[in-house]
């Protein structure tokens, strides 16, 4: 049945799966961090990811700042943008039903994407790989940049997870996740913590965007297309579970890649089917140990 499957095809798709999974994991992690503390489902996460890629492109095209510079500058720019967004759009409605924050970030997505598309058109802009070439592993060709993406995303996810699980700052975050009121009653400026957390999560999206620029084309809709998958990842992993978001992200990327090998027609649907199965058989999420809804 699987006669036509060469190692090149299998490992090639597996690599694409891991690459996609790297982005799923990083974005879902940011979404889970923001949701955990603020109970905001940040629909604009995809648009902010796109902004990261765009800022990198602008830095290169207009200021001649290469990828390695953009990797630091763009996330900061996007994080500052996120902080302004939090102050203007999310803070005023923090005490309302959380559906409003989903809707307001959705509305912001329309505006951000619309403005970028109006300015730069909807076709993709090329961004050359800063690490051309690669290595032949015998069973497959491994481009350097893709290797860098995988390593970088694993380090970022692991680092963020350690930061949250094993530092004082992280204990504030986990505690405020459970009860912001009590943490604030200890004299901690929780509103500012929320602003900074949103900025951090959005910065992570921006960082993913820079990382993605050389892999995918830089286009206005590169983020919103991804949001459906990211939502599914977060729902499957269990809302607000950071480790759940990370693991589910990689897992779904790999599963999607393997589906392309063994059942190409199903590749577009497999994540959705997993979400259906997870909802029906694990209604509280795969990694729902600390889940709160």
């Amino acid at each position: 049945m699987f006669d036509g499957i060469t190692p090149q095809l299998l490992f090639g798709q597996l690599l694409i799966g891991v690459i996609n999974g790297s982005f799923y994991a990083m974005l879902a992690m940011g979404l889970a961090i923001i949701f955990g503390l603020m109970h905001v489902v940040n629909f604009a996460h995809g648009a902010q990811y796109m902004l990261g890629a765009f800022v990198a492109w602008l830095l290169l095209t207009h200021l001649g700042i290469p990828y390695w510079g953009a990797l630091f500058i763009a996330p900061v720019v996007v994080a500052i943008f996120g902080i302004v967004m939090e102050r203007l759009l999310l803070k005023p409605i923090a005490n309302l039903d959380h559906l409003y924050s989903l809707l307001v970030t959705y509305a912001a997505t329309l505006v951000i994407e619309g403005l970028i598309r109006q300015q730069y058109g909807s076709t993709g802009l090329p961004y050359n790989s800063p690490l051309p070439g690669g290595v032949n592993l015998g069973f497959m060709f491994m481009p350097w940049y893709r290797l860098w993406v995988v390593v970088f995303s694993v380090v970022t996810c692991l680092g963020t997870w350690l930061l949250i699980e094993h530092t004082k700052l992280g204990s504030y975050l986990r505690a405020a996740n459970e009860s912001p009121e009590i943490v604030e009653s200890f004299g901690i400026n929780v509103p500012r913590m929320m602003t900074l957390t949103y900025g951090f999560g959005v910065g992570l999206a921006g960082l993913s965007g820079v990382l993605a620029a050389p892999v995918y084309q830089v286009s206005p809709s590169m983020g919103s297309g991804l949001m459906i998958t990211i939502f599914a990842v977060v729902v499957i992993g269990g809302m607000g579970s950071i480790i759940g978001a990370i693991l589910t992200g990689y897992l779904l990327g790999i599963v999607e890649g393997l589906t392309k090998v063994f059942y190409p027609e199903g590749a577009g649907l497999v994540i959705f089917f997993i979400m259906l199965l997870a909802l029906i058989f694990r209604p509280s999420g795969l990694f729902s140990g600390t889940e709160k809804s």
């Binding site: 559906l99 909802l279 029906i280």
Partner: peptide, 24 residues
């Protein structure tokens, strides 16, 4: 399927569902 999760997750699930229907 979607009422298994309440509030905001209901919104996210219906969103994913709609994209699935779109794809089909």
């Amino acid at each position: 399927v979607a009422v298994r999760r309440s509030g905001i997750q209901f919104a996210m699930i219906t969103f994913a569902f709609a994209q699935f229907v779109y794809f089909l």
